[in-house]
Design a protein around this nucleic acid. Structure first.
Lengths: 357, 357
DNA sequence: GAGGGAACGTTTTACGTATAACTTGCGGCG
DNA sequence: CGCCGCAAGTTATACGTAAAACGTTCCCTC
């Protein structure tokens, strides 16, 4: 098809086209090794036990090597009906957590000769365009992380095995789920702050409709319920430092002022630290701040953030393992991975109130 | 192949397998619409101008809709010989810059009905495993960002059109390149600090063998050459906050102490800020710190980093555009995108030396 | 009223691979 | 001697799609 580029030219086989040489196929290898194409496929596929002599096998392999043969993946996929490729759907890659989930999934995939292609769901909402088409590859399964409910529905359409990460285990038609014990993480945060003596808490909540943030809010409410303390909720429109700064400024302007700000995410916590300092408050002496996720940002800040470490790579890895289980007919577990509060320098005892008792 | 799961069972066609319904093919759609498969292909391919009546076309489309037909991408790729898919090779996705490059490339790709699959080159060195195989998709071209020289050689093997980002324009067999005016960025940094009056500079250099870091070092040397100032080089083993902290601690322990630390990357700059504070120095009053790249981290820190903003999305987008140009036979430009110093709060005039004149 | 197009389809083929089904030669065994 | 069975291949086929090549009608023009 590319030979029509110079129409008037005679179409004789010319030896002077070194760059446009077509990719060798298994048939080319076969010709080179004086065997049939089937034999090439057997040998290179590794299934030649007792079907091909060792001598012939070596001949084939050497022919493949000299020709620089690479199997055509499209043809293989068509023939086999599967592709050893999974689609990973994430809200955004610029968020460290999802980049790490991807890394974990990729690692496990590579161990099993699998591939991962990414679909960054636009704007964190629903897949506006078709994820299956835009993945540009035939897929064996889908792993979706932290999706909003509407987005999940669209993913169900594919008819592919679906593994969901960080999502309500009850809902959805997922073949398997991997979850984090987010509620426990928030309980640890609350316990830590209550233990330090904090009684007036602010909850900087992300106004994002995903399971994980719902759990964070409920867990905090429950943890505070039995205590002589209150958690005031302030919503941040967005999961950014900038939005966190704005929301935290509002939260810290309340009277009486909260002595600790519990943030749904490290980015919000970074914003909260900035807000505090602009209001003339020191962290942690005047106000404690906690994050969530333990992004790499957490240790870059000063003071280093007390936050909840999420095993992101492990989530991605477990998701991939679950998908492999489903694809191979095994029953996949539905692990709930533990999370851990990491105490660093952004939390301390509340300031001594001059007036209160 | 999956039917061997219960060996003793009779293999009669049973109607009680609702979930395992095979995907409809274009032939199924054809049967449903009482036309031939070819007609389905024409209609859904959009090439039915004057070949199929509008009535029939609508029938076909509706049949496709009710059956939930999706074209088999493997078959299409095999037939067409191209896949509308590009491979993007990056050292690591957890680094904000590359996540943004990916976002830019994806955006442009989507506009042209193209796909992007990622290959995170292991350990930033060479592709240890085969990128073409592990991409698990037939590829039309490759975009490689910030690769070390050895890694580039391996990429050349594929015989695919290659676009290189942030790499030496002279070297390599790339069909096109996209570059940033890194040298100008470093000149802006040097000019800014020299203009503020700094004379003892420290260069916190990344010990990574890629073009971009080589340029940063040379540009800084040249900028300082004609001035009554010196730039002492300290190497950071790694591109992390932690490594930056260690290296900056060394740099700031020198006598006489530098009054400004020029970092090759924002992560190193974050480490430098921490180092300064641990040594009892204030930023920027006692020591100025500059970063490079303008990661999202830069505005999360306090003080906000003075740094050089790299148009990462634009790099990815330009790379994708260049690849599309090459693939469609147009001559691709080799843009060099401008960068801009962003002055924020981590730089100021050097402290007044008590002793010096 | 013969012939030439349009208009509207259909039949057929090829893409490259994996594998089921078949061939062939040969040594061994009853 | 006849025949089985194994080793070492080969031949043939299917996967689902796109598109070239090939029919039909039917209408319009000369």
């Amino acid at each position: 098809m590319a030979s029509t580029r110079r129409p008037g030219t005679a179409d004789e086989p010319d030896a002077t086209a070194p760059s446009e040489r077509p990719r060798p196929t298994s048939r080319d290898v076969a010709r080179h090794a004086n065997v049939s194409q089937a034999t090439v496929s057997l040998v290179l596929g590794g299934k030649w036990q007792g079907r091909v002599s060792a001598r012939t096998a070596e001949t084939v392999r050497s022919a493949a090597r000299t020709l620089g043969y690479r199997p055509n993946l499209a043809a293989r996929s068509l023939r086999l009906g599967r592709t050893r490729t999974a689609l990973l759907v994430v809200p955004a890659l610029t968020h460290d957590y999802f980049a790490r989930v991807h890394a974990g999934a990729s690692r496990v995939a590579a161990e099993h000769d699998f591939g991962v292609v990414l679909y960054p769901s636009p704007e964190g909402t629903g897949p506006a365009v078709d994820p299956f088409g835009s993945a540009r590859a035939a897929l064996d399964g889908v792993i979706a992380s932290s999706m909003a409910p509407e987005a999940l529905a669209a993913l169900g359409e594919g008819g592919l095995p679906l593994v969901m990460l960080d999502t309500d285990p009850a809902g959805g038609r997922a073949a398997a789920t991997v979850n984090l014990d987010i509620a426990d993480g928030m309980r640890q945060v609350a316990g830590h702050l209550l233990g330090l003596g904090h009684r007036r808490l602010a909850h900087l909540a992300a106004a994002v409709d995903t399971w994980t943030f719902g759990v964070r809010a409920r867990a905090l409410e429950e943890a505070v319920a039995g205590e002589p303390a209150a958690a005031m909720r302030t919503e941040s429109s967005d999961l950014t430092v900038e939005a966190g700064l704005r929301a935290a400024t509002r939260a810290l302007s309340a009277e009486p002022r909260p002595t600790a700000v519990i943030c749904d995410d490290d980015l919000l916590a970074a914003g909260a630290c900035k807000a505090a300092r602009r209001l003339g408050l020191r962290v942690p002496e005047d106000v404690s701040v906690t994050g969530f996720d333990d992004l790499s940002l957490a240790t870059a800040l000063e003071p280093e953030l007390t936050t909840v470490r999420l095993p992101a790579e492990e989530v991605g890895a477990a998701g991939m393992r679950a998908l492999l289980d489903v694809l191979e007919g095994r029953t996949a577990g539905t692990p709930v991975l533990p999370v851990r509060l990491v105490q660093r320098d952004s939390t301390a005892e509340p300031p001594q109130p001059p007036e209160e008792r």
